[in-house]
Computed example of a mutant assay.
Amino acid sequence: MIERPMPKKMPGLYKNGVIYLDKQLSPEKSVEILAEEIGHHFTSAGDITDYSKIENMKQEVRARRFGHELIITFDGLIEAWSIGVHNIFEMAIHFGVTEEYIFEAIEHYKQRHGLSTIHGDYLIRFDPLMVYKYKDLRGE
């Protein structure tokens, strides 16, 4: 990863196996952009800097969602909930990202899984965000 000044509308760039980040980003934004650029490594192909092309925008969305799942994992949500992190502000601090990023990740999960999902022994509700021990719900 290389930190350097970047064009105004490009806080990060993945090119030839190297991630470039704007050195003026906040620590939280750096984490978010780094995760997205890692997503580009795994999900994108070619030069996608021309945002007027729909395929390029699709690759941007795919990389962004990859980043959400990289940082805000189900295991991470369960762990945060279990230690008393129960609101978006606290979640943002816990994961080292902005509150907006937490909202985006939850919205992504709602689109992908619906209003809830089961992960291991846990039920994760996305609206409102809550985590339940699934065994507790079955009366075990």
Score class of each variant (00 low, 15 high):
87 N>Q: 13
88 I>Q: 13
88 I>A: 09
89 F>G: 12
90 E>V: 02
90 E>T: 03
90 E>S: 09
90 E>N: 14
91 M>D: 09
91 M>L: 14
91 M>I: 06
94 H>N: 05
94 H>S: 00
96 G>S: 12
97 V>G: 03
97 V>E: 03
98 T>L: 08
99 E>L: 09
99 E>I: 05
99 E>G: 01
100 E>P: 06
101 Y>P: 01
101 Y>Q: 00
101 Y>R: 00
101 Y>K: 00
102 I>G: 02
102 I>A: 06
103 F>S: 07
103 F>N: 03
103 F>H: 02
104 E>R: 06
104 E>S: 08
104 E>I: 02
106 I>P: 08
107 E>K: 13
108 H>W: 09
108 H>R: 00
109 Y>D: 15
111 Q>I: 09
112 R>Y: 14
114 G>Y: 12
114 G>L: 13
114 G>T: 03
114 G>D: 12
114 G>A: 03
115 L>G: 13
115 L>I: 15
115 L>Q: 15
116 S>G: 08
117 T>M: 07
118 I>K: 14
118 I>G: 08
119 H>F: 10
120 G>M: 01
120 G>I: 00
120 G>P: 04
122 Y>N: 15
122 Y>W: 07
124 I>G: 04
124 I>Y: 05
125 R>V: 13
125 R>M: 15
126 F>K: 03
126 F>P: 14
127 D>F: 00
129 L>H: 04
130 M>D: 12
130 M>L: 08
130 M>S: 12
130 M>V: 00
130 M>G: 11
131 V>G: 14
131 V>R: 05
133 K>V: 07
133 K>N: 15
134 Y>P: 01
134 Y>K: 09
134 Y>T: 07
135 K>A: 04
135 K>C: 05
135 K>S: 11
136 D>Y: 10
136 D>F: 13
